[in-house]
Design a protein around this nucleic acid. Sequence first.
DNA 1: TATTGATCATAC
DNA 2: GTATGATCAATA
Length: 264
Amino acid sequence: MVNLPPQTTRSKNKQAGLNPHATTYLVKLTENNQIYESTLVQRVSPPTSVSELMQRVEAIAGTTLGELAAQFQFKSPEDLLKEKGWPGQLIEHVLGASAGSKPVPDFEQIGVELKTLPISYQGKPLETTYVSIVPLTELTGLTWQQSSVKKKLSHVLWLPILAERDIAPVDRTIGTGFLWQPSFEQEAQLRRDWEEQIELIALGRIQEISGHLGEVMQIRPKAANSKVLTDAIGPDGGLIKTLPRGFYLKTQFTQSILLDHFSN
DNA sequence: TATTGATCATAC
DNA sequence: GTATGATCAATA
């Protein structure tokens, strides 16, 4: 695969009605020196300020995922049976989030984490919100302040998407995104759930943990399938193999975030 | 029908 | 396997 120099510039993108923050590249897939496919890809520059990010967020409010996908030559799956992460990946791309699976905020320069939030016709969250992997070993001395949950949720850009299952992914409408930081009480709730469940894990009682625990944040499996195993502390203090877990925000919690924001 | 447990794509 | 992005689907 050959990555050629930019074929269109920022200004040309503007003329063509494309996103002025995006630079378009022509990528040619070659084999035996023969070009068998050419495709345009775009790279959107990371926002350099919160206000720049929010301008982009406002610009996509009211559009559909399909419209954005077409505009950015992004694939559009017919359903999300596979590619479950498509909405988030598309929005990341459009807003200029740093790509990859690095353990840093989506908008690294400004320390903001992006979370798409599927909502119903009534505006209620349809799914829990994944936060981060749950550490299962080497927990001694780990504090809430150091936790990935605390870091991830310190500054979040919530982007509601009308995502009822009877709406095709491409026809799902993007709502009004907004920034959020946990209130004192919200952080206290998160901290209690984190400490209570991490404590159980540290005590070797991970097998007692299910999605039922946690007032606003639960622990559930987070793996390719139920056969994936990782190390955890066992009942006798030694290491055992168990399913990898993740922290998820319960829908009532994210709903309260929406209500706090949109009812004022 | 709300919730918990299971799963899918991708990058490394 | 770990970690990113999440939603699907069986169960209670």
